[in-house]
Design a binder for these strands. Structure first.
Lengths: 240, 240, 240, 240
DNA sequence: CATGAATGAGGATTCATTCAT
DNA sequence: GATGAATGAATCCTCATTCAT
């Protein structure tokens, strides 16, 4: 139990030299995390052994267990480090001001685009998370929290939109759920399953934008592609 | 249309796959498959050992290997037997006649409902499939083909709708993809993740119906619940 | 989990051939137990690995774990098989009839002698038991039960002796405890620690016999060695 | 008389054993020994790691190895420091004068009582010693020498008693062995195994006192408690 | 002197798979 | 065909010990 993780017991009379040991520690830990990320991406969770991780990191297996209790812990760490902020990033840049702005549709489109980008940035890890979520309680919880967060963010926006009279949406929470999961699913399919290049995302993003925007803020005819370029201010379409 | 799903599992000259002719054989095989189904549902794939399957089936481990090359093969078999038809069932009862019928919206709603029911009928196995799809080539292929099939079915319907002048939809394939994945994702969330009872599906199914119907066949206002009951006959919208 | 230990699940249509499989099983198990006994005696518990046991038994490590959950279980088995009956044997052949018989002293002597013999028959294992008793709950419980049994047996005899007016002993239970533990301790010292040959046990056994017999049934003078050789029926010995 | 106990632990030219001269050193060493004592008591020898000891001592594992070659050495040290004097203390306060004094029985009783107290003062460590004695040559040797010492002390007293005509005891050495081991065994059982409080020792101590005193110095009838108070000069007790 | 990160041999345990009966 | 005992490679994890700082 000389784990460098808990250096709380003694560190002697620290003078000027505070970093060197901690520095080496930090690097070893970092090497392990990087190695784990790489291997998890390449082989998946089950097929990566703790020995593999240590080997790829270029440290001993003992060191691995000095820093982590097991490979699951590393995964959780990676998850929190890399994925969480990305998923949360989607709606974080969608403020209430956007609701009344002129480029509401563009805003939505950027959110959706961001979701696609997220997946593309670490496809293996993202895949991994979805693999493990049903099996691992902690991973599942994180996953669920992230989705719930997204839903909640969107629901808040929709409620605001209702208050502002921008939409007559009956059930913001359910609508938010549907939208978030729809966007998520399509993004996953395009980026992770089909491995589409960014250039090929366009039609999907447009379609999702249309579908959600239309549903929430008033219908636009399901229009031909060239028509889709028109300004979203299609309120005059329902002059009844 | 969904024919390519079957016959996919011929794994070369594996003796084990030959269907046994004798009655006793058939029963042994059946017992093994049932046991595997049960255990996969209960414990997941990795945590089910071939020995467990044989034990629960009440036969020897030797017999297991007489019938199957390994547990993965049993899973693929199960997948074929149980899941394929269900997923395919969604669009199989949605014929071209429905497009011109009066209850188009009801039809869509039933399709979506069917997707939810599918998940509820064997949650463990469904979950399993999604777990393994990213890791196992064959499972992934089956999974993908099923989704592709659904998408293709819907896309065909949408194209027909375009031909009939019912919609001006620009890109039926992309739209079909978005809809199928959206419905799938929300169904999974409600049924598998949240474990909602059937009575709680209603708002989600309604929301998805509205969103997709509206997107494809012309906008309905994002209306309050009671308004949603109104007939979908928004024909006056396309009087042009 | 194809452990041969639990053959309960299936055994097929057993005809005349019931033994062959079970026979092989039995032999493997026996080989493992023997190997374990040997190694435990030679090296002690901690320094014997399950792999060692399997290797010495000439079977695979997998087989070891098919029959036992771990090496501790083997030890407990050995303990019960070999030690229990021996310790219990000490007082089992000391019946109430002996109390009124002429050779009460001889009887006691034989009991004490039996305790020495027990230790000599499997010194390594006996030693082992005493090693592990303080550390392993189950071993400790067995150990305690055996001693308690011995004490209880002796206490019952003493109470009977009191009833018969053979002694005025005040506290049979405490006396029984003292005697049993005393005999046990001296036997252990002579046989296990000093490794005395049987020929050298004599003085210790005589001394213990005198001490306990004298204490319980009336004092005999602590006599000189040559006197001790005389027939034990000796109350009339000190008519001085 | 008990001098050979000390000085036994010089383990060749081990640098680690050199007593450090500097104050800081001495304290570090002391902290390590205390920590080891605590952990050995709490967890036993095998389950205490050298890292644990260093951690609890609040020093680095490196320091541990600077002072001791391994944890076994610490144990031997502890044994010397704490146990040796206690065991030896039993007979140290039993001088030849007591033999002719009036309170011979009380003297014996105090010796026996002291043995019980010894066990109670560091039960964990005492237990530990008995655990390790059979496995560790050095521990075993120390253990044996302590017991031998006690036996030798008592034997010397008995021989003196014979010389003084107080007893006709034939074999003082064997008798001493029996007594010492008997007292030791009962003390261990009461204090370590059963964890009896001091108040519950009484009957055992009385019983042992009676048994040994009676055996050596002439029989007393196995009497009821109140009779036990009578003077031990009792040859005329069996005037039958 | 003290530190504590790093090491890696070694032990426990699992489970897919084979094969003699 | 069926059986189930046997196999052993592979994995996880611990801990005594070293050594560069």
């Amino acid at each position: 139990m000389n784990s460098p993780v808990k250096g709380a017991l003694t560190c002697g009379p620290k003078l000027a030299v505070v970093l060197p040991k901690q520095e080496r520690s930090r690097r070893t830990r970092e090497k392990l995390i990087l190695a784990a990320a790489q291997l998890f991406e390449e082989r998946g969770f089950e097929k990566t052994t703790s020995n593999d991780i240590a080997a790829v990191a270029g440290v001993s297996i003992g060191s691995f267990y000095a820093y982590f209790s097991d490979k699951r812990q590393v995964l959780l760490l990676l998850f929190e480090q890399r994925i969480a902020e990305r998923l949360n990033a989607v709606f974080s840049n969608f403020t209430e001001d956007d609701l009344t702005g002129n480029d509401l549709r563009g805003c939505i489109e950027r959110c959706i685009h961001r979701t696609f980008v997220n997946k593309a940035e670490s496809p293996g890890l993202t895949r991994l998370i979805y693999d493990l979520a049903p099996k691992d309680e902690a991973v599942g919880a994180l996953c669920r929290r992230l989705m719930d967060d997204s839903v909640e963010n969107l629901a808040a926006l929709l409620r605001r939109a209702v208050d502002l009279g921008l939409t007559q949406l009956a059930d913001p929470k359910t609508t938010a759920t549907a939208i978030v999961y729809a966007v998520e699913a399509v993004a996953r399919k395009c980026v992770l399953e089909d491995g589409l290049p960014r250039s090929a995302w366009e039609p999907y993003i447009t379609c999702l934008t249309e579908m959600t925007y239309g549903f929430v803020f008033g219908a636009t005819y399901p229009m031909a592609a060239q028509e889709a370029d028109q300004p979203p201010a299609s309120s005059e379409k329902k002059p009844t």
